[in-house]
Simulated scan of single mutants.
Amino acid sequence: MSHYLHPAEYLPHDTPMLLLEDVINVTDDTTICEVTVTETGVLGPFIDDRGSLPGWYALELMAQTVGVWSGWHRKQHGQDSISLGMVLGARELVCAAGILPANARLTITVKLLMQDERFGSFECAISVGNETLATGRINTFQPTTEELTTLFHQGSTA
């Protein structure tokens, strides 16, 4: 049995936008999460008419796995609050088949390439067994509380 908590304990996401089912491993510079592409699972609302997940969801699966990495490390340092992070962009994001296939157990792996106080870069892959289905590099940003307040309250005082 895994000694990791459910992904929801590390992410600021709720159903239906929580797209991961299991945290498999977290180290100083890597995280591995899994999810199964089924109509009855967490990906159910996003499945196409063939039972597959459209390939553009690869970015969000990778980003949420980065979020698990960040959330796990925050908990290890005694910070229980979940912090909102942002994807600045993705480079060389490729999902060759254009889909993540029906009934596949997806393994999402992220590896830290670079990090400072607020920015990070991660090499990411989604695979089924030994077959890699999607790859890319995700660049992330950790906004301050003040920046988040400004972002989410812009225009709400008019």
Score class of each variant (00 low, 15 high):
Met1Leu: 05
Ser2His: 02
Ser2Thr: 09
Leu5Met: 10
Ala8Asp: 12
Glu9Arg: 04
Tyr10Glu: 04
Tyr10Cys: 09
Pro12Thr: 02
Pro12Ile: 02
Asp14Tyr: 12
Asp14Arg: 15
Thr15Gln: 13
Thr15Glu: 14
Met17Phe: 15
Leu18Arg: 09
Glu21Ile: 02
Ile24Val: 15
Ile24Arg: 12
Val26Cys: 07
Thr27Arg: 05
Asp28Val: 07
Asp29Phe: 08
Thr31His: 00
Ile32Glu: 03
Cys33Pro: 03
Glu34Ile: 01
Val37Met: 06
Thr38Lys: 07
Gly41Gln: 03
Gly41Ala: 07
Gly44Gln: 08
Pro45Ala: 07
Phe46Arg: 05
Asp48Arg: 10
Arg50Gln: 13
Arg50Cys: 01
Ser52Pro: 00
Leu53His: 02
Pro54Leu: 06
Gly55Tyr: 06
Gly55Phe: 00
Trp56Leu: 13
Tyr57Gln: 04
Ala63Arg: 01
Gln64Asp: 09
Gln64Arg: 07
Thr65Pro: 02
Thr65Ala: 10
Val66Tyr: 04
Val68Asp: 01
Trp72Val: 02
Arg74Gln: 11
Arg74Ile: 00
Arg74Cys: 02
Lys75Arg: 15
His77Asp: 14
His77Trp: 07
Gly78Asn: 10
Gln79Trp: 04
Asp80Ala: 13
Asp80Trp: 11
Ile82Asn: 07
Ser83Phe: 14
Ser83Thr: 12
Leu84Phe: 14
Gly85Ser: 09
Val87Cys: 09
Leu88Cys: 10
Leu88Trp: 03
Gly89His: 07
Val94Tyr: 04
Val94Ala: 11
Val94Asp: 09
Ala96Ile: 02
Ala96Asn: 09
Ala97Glu: 15
Ala97Arg: 14
Ile99Glu: 06
Leu100Ala: 04
Asn103Ala: 08
Ala104Ile: 01
Ala104Asn: 01
Leu106Gly: 03
Leu106Pro: 00
Thr107Val: 06
Ile108Val: 13
Thr109Ala: 04
Thr109Val: 03
Val110Cys: 10
Lys111Tyr: 03
Leu112Arg: 10
Gln115Trp: 00
Arg118Asp: 12
Gly120Ser: 06
Cys124His: 11
Cys124Pro: 08
Ala125His: 03
Gly129Asn: 07
Gly129Gln: 11
Leu133Gln: 02
Gly136Thr: 09
Arg137Gly: 02
Phe141Ser: 05
Gln142Cys: 08
Thr144Phe: 08
Thr144Cys: 11
Thr144Asn: 12
Thr145Phe: 12
Thr149Ile: 09
Thr150Val: 15
Leu151Thr: 14
His153Gly: 14
Ser156Pro: 00
Thr157Glu: 13
